[in-house]
Design a protein around this nucleic acid. Structure first.
Length: 570
RNA sequence: GGGCCUGUAGCUCAAUUGGUUAGAGCAGAGCGCUCAUAACGCUUUGGUUGCGGGUUCAAGUCCUGCCGGGCCUACCA
């Protein structure tokens, strides 16, 4: 048994997330967590909401709510939706928690003590109308290079030239449109990442088993231009973790908060403490401190590719720089993007299917199966209603659901609702078991490697093998002349349902639980020796013939949804 | 502009890291079965691997030049 710490990138608080957010981090993380638990490992699976930063403030203002209230509401909504998708977090925390505030301040203090923080006075644009400093990209104006009128302060979208906000002609606030702007001096803390470059570089180089997507992004930041740049970790905002040096005030930094990307990853750690403080566990430090038991912990992170630099460099810089026995990540699974009907999902534009809507129209397992079996692992992938319908109907309803149905109903009609006795394991049955044994090995290997699509494909092939077996064994025909032989085949098939339920649970937990319940059994240890495992349901064992496991998606439904979600959402 | 990823059958993806005739699923066609959610099984039609050069006994795989898609480019997160 191992101890495995799993975190999913923490979703931002500014609205309900779409399916792309789900498939990139939370869902694969959940799959892995469920698999690891099923293997008997000790798992701590953490996620949280990322609540600080300018967009959160703006979203709260738009909703006409105090920021703290807004965040609490959105956190609860996201927690409910996450539960709806069966995300099995051990704790779903908040980056605005007191635990994270304390830890963030602690890390800043530790970094300062180690000479890795520098105070820098810089000039930033202040908007009188908005009453706030504006991040570069919240300033718009005419590009001095190409004349594009909606250029942002960080970069012109038209000519792609990098800009400084003061370069813009006729600058205005992207929030209010106000031109009442002023360049003010302000003091900020910088994390001297450049001093940690060599350590970070060596650490990245040691990660030879990481996906190229992950390491290449890290290397680019490490080696590009002058190498890893120092980074401002404070902001002039009201909402966030107040700047402190450990528990001490930080002279000159009054009224400032830490930058959201400084405190957000620290929430991974703080979340473990929240987990303990919520009474869900003990000894949180044994998961996070190598001097307190975390030496034997394997830490796996899941995220979309846009998050990679912060998880390969910024956060590790915090950990390494603090130099206080904190656990570094062991493996990063990064994901590409899911597109929607020929374009991108977009939270800001309300394009695509959002998580709450998805749950309204179909059970979570439909989404989980499709998203995981089509996960954008090697490149961006595309969601279309047509493929979603055909894939889900075929895989879940026809291959798996119908298998369960045909076996149980046949058994009921010929032998009653219990596992039939008599007969010997047929040659076909022996061959099936051998085949499944090999596939089980592949499935396990793919799950260990967190190969999502390959795992799904292998699992599906095991379902298919059940149908092939039934077809060739044809117990409905054999029954007429040799009921005992038919009984033996049906007995094996009924046991397959239990096996499928157990193996499929990480993908489709609800349906798997129903299969287990209907078969009147419970999952045991992770299956290894199939000849034994497939006799778990003995002759005479009663079961219930299940209702339809997966109803098919009809053409009418598909058309309705396709048109309903074709536009944008408020 | 720069860096990285990517382009394989109508669609979604494989191809043991340079090694036989490029494979699966879906969709299409045909046959079989009748236990089952008109479900299942078997067979089968689809490919000049984006395009052009090159290296090699051998290239989907390596090099190079084009063309297309994507991500990042450090103050959105």
């Amino acid at each position: 048994m191992s101890r495995i710490l799993i975190t999913s990138a923490i979703p931002y608080i500014n609205g309900i997330k779409h399916l792309g957010n789900l498939v990139g981090s939370q869902l694969p993380a959940d799959l892995y967590a469920r698999y690891c638990r099923a293997r008997g490992h000790e798992v701590l699976f953490l996620c949280a909401t990322d609540e600080h930063g300018t967009p959160a403030e703006l979203a709260a203002a738009k909703a006409n709510k105090p920021i703290a209230e807004f965040c609490t509401e959105m956190h609860d909504i996201q927690a409910t939706i996450g539960a709806g998708f069966g995300l099995s977090f051990d704790h779903f925390g908040r980056s605005s928690s007191p635990q994270n505030r304390e830890l963030t301040q602690y890390f800043a203090g530790a970094l300062a003590d180690n000479g890795l923080i520098e105070e820098v006075t810089e000039k930033q644009v202040y908007s009188h109308t908005d009453g706030r400093f504006l991040p570069d990209r919240y300033i718009e104006g005419t590009c001095p290079n190409c004349g594009y009128e909606k250029a942002r302060g960080d970069q012109c979208e038209n000519c792609t030239k990098q800009l400084d906000p003061t370069d813009l002609i006729n600058p205005c606030s992207a929030i209010s449109g106000s031109t009442d702007l002023e360049v003010r001096e302000t003091k900020h803390l910088y994390l001297l990442q450049s001093k940690l470059r060599d350590k970070l570089s060596a650490w990245i180089d040691s990660k030879t088993d990481w996906p190229i997507l992950t390491t290449s992004i890290a290397r680019k930041w490490l080696n590009d231009g002058d190498g890893l740049q120092d980074r401002g970790i404070t902001r002039d905002l009201d909402w966030g973790v107040p700047v402190k040096r450990g528990t001490e005030d930080w002279p000159g930094m009054e009224g400032k908060v830490f930058y959201v990307w400084f405190d957000a990853p620290i929430e991974y750690i703080a979340c473990a403490r929240e987990w303990q403080d919520a009474g869900k566990g003990t000894d949180w430090e044994s998961w996070w401190r190598t001097d307190k038991g975390a030496d034997d912990v394997r830490y796996v992170q899941f995220m979309g590719k846009d998050n990679v630099p912060f998880h390969t460099l910024s956060f590790p810089a915090t950990i390494i720089g603090a130099d206080d026995n904190w656990k570094l990540v062991d493996y990063i699974k990064s994901s590409n993007y899911l597109n929607y009907e020929g374009g991108q999902f977009s939270t800001s534009q309300g394009r695509g299917v959002f998580q709450d809507q998805a749950l309204e129209i179909l059970p979570a397992d439909y989404w989980r199966w499709w998203l995981l079996s089509h996960a954008p692992e090697t490149s961006d992938t595309e969601f279309t209603w047509e493929t979603f319908q055909t894939d889900v109907n075929k895989d879940l309803a026809d291959v798996l659901g119908n298998f369960v149905s045909r076996v149980t109903k046949f058994c009921r009609s010929k032998f009653g609702e219990e596992v039939p006795a008599g007969g010997e394991l047929s040659e076909r049955g022996t061959a099936l078991i051998a085949d499944l044994q090999e596939k089980l090995g592949q499935y396990t290997a793919h799950m260990e490697a967190i190969e999502l699509r390959k795992s799904a494909a292998t699992l599906r092939s095991m379902w298919v093998a059940g149908n092939e077996f039934l077809q060739s064994a044809a117990p409905w025909s054999v029954f007429k002349t040799d009921p005992e032989a038919a009984a033996a085949d049906v007995r094996l098939a009924l046991n397959l349902i239990r096996l499928y339920a157990q193996l499929s649970a990480p993908f489709i937990p609800e349906a798997a639980a129903r299969m287990m319940a209907d078969m009147n059994t419970a999952p045991g240890a992770w299956p290894e020796d199939l000849p034994t495992v497939l006799t778990a349901l003995p002759p005479g064992h009663a079961f219930t013939t299940p209702e339809v496991l997966f109803a098919k998606i009809t053409d009418e439904q598909r058309e309705d949804w396709a048109s309903r979600f074709s536009g944008t959402r408020d």
